[in-house]
Design a protein around this nucleic acid. Sequence first.
DNA 1: ACCTGAACACCGTTCAAGT
DNA 2: ACCTGAACACCGTTCAAGT
Lengths: 184, 184
Amino acid sequence: MRYHRRDVVERAIAVLDEYGLESLSMRRLAAELGLQPSALYHHVPNKQTLLAAIADEILARGRRERQAVEWDRRVVEICCELRDAMLAYRDGCDVVATAHTFGLGASEPATALRAALRDSGLPDDLVEVGTRALLHLVFGHTAEEQAALQAASAGAIDWEPGGTGDFEAGIGLLLDGLRSKVHR
Amino acid sequence: MRYHRRDVVERAIAVLDEYGLESLSMRRLAAELGLQPSALYHHVPNKQTLLAAIADEILARGRRERQAVEWDRRVVEICCELRDAMLAYRDGCDVVATAHTFGLGASEPATALRAALRDSGLPDDLVEVGTRALLHLVFGHTAEEQAALQAASAGAIDWEPGGTGDFEAGIGLLLDGLRSKVHR
DNA sequence: ACCTGAACACCGTTCAAGT
DNA sequence: ACCTGAACACCGTTCAAGT
């Protein structure tokens, strides 16, 4: 059977979700598709690129309509969408955050947050600082939450994840800081 | 020659700083010490534990006196000390942040931040949310900064790191949010 | 206590060759 | 265009045996 890039990315996400990032090797993925490892390099130049494609696909699958009009409500909406998208797949936060760090894709949320902050009337440098701070908070909180959720579902119930409340509280603190800088 | 745990950790930090995290393998470290790979397992139960020990040592080497008395100045002091400690070694942020995420050591900064926020009179839940948010900001910003610094020193000068200004601005935004929650 | 030697079960990537 | 087969240069970890 003959595959295309899209098939490889889709199967990679399935392997990721079922067995976790540490089990998602090029050799394992090839075996899952009934291919030799070398065949994968026809569809993807290397593993890093594959992971970036997975990150983009995870974000695309988590996309939903954004309806808020005020800039601060929109920030919360974007952050929650990002968090939910990453939580929907095992190790999703790891994959998306890494891709973002390496500057390979996963850039839509950053763009959307920047646009929202720009609409607030904040000066350019604060737009930039705020965007990055918001992303760090979302990635940091979600990574912790996902680790806790996965540890709990593996039986090691050592910590109840703060959940949505803690998440929105953290974002809220930063948003308070940003709002105080908007001169009306 | 006979080694102790301390020698192994010290040599591991030297390898990390000179060749980077991706080159710090158990086999490479063993070779650097003139040992068989299996000999390392006499000093350390596994690689994860070694990395946690490295993280703790990096933080210990970056320790400095904290002199601020007001809680918010102390928060800035702790965050800056943490950032500087991690920036002092190649891939230091990666190692410390990972150890912290896995709950293996690297816990002193969290403890110190929690204590500072407690002194502010903030309610317990906000102390917790604030501590984690501050750590996420420090790790997120420092990871980005260190990646940019290392890319720049490797010749790929694609982005000037925001530096201390951007760092303190991000922390400052969150601190504004926290200060607005302190009832006086 | 600390170390060697050998093995087990893996990695990512390249490249000539096949259809 | 898509794939096989074989190879290269690696991993972390275990375990019996040596001193």
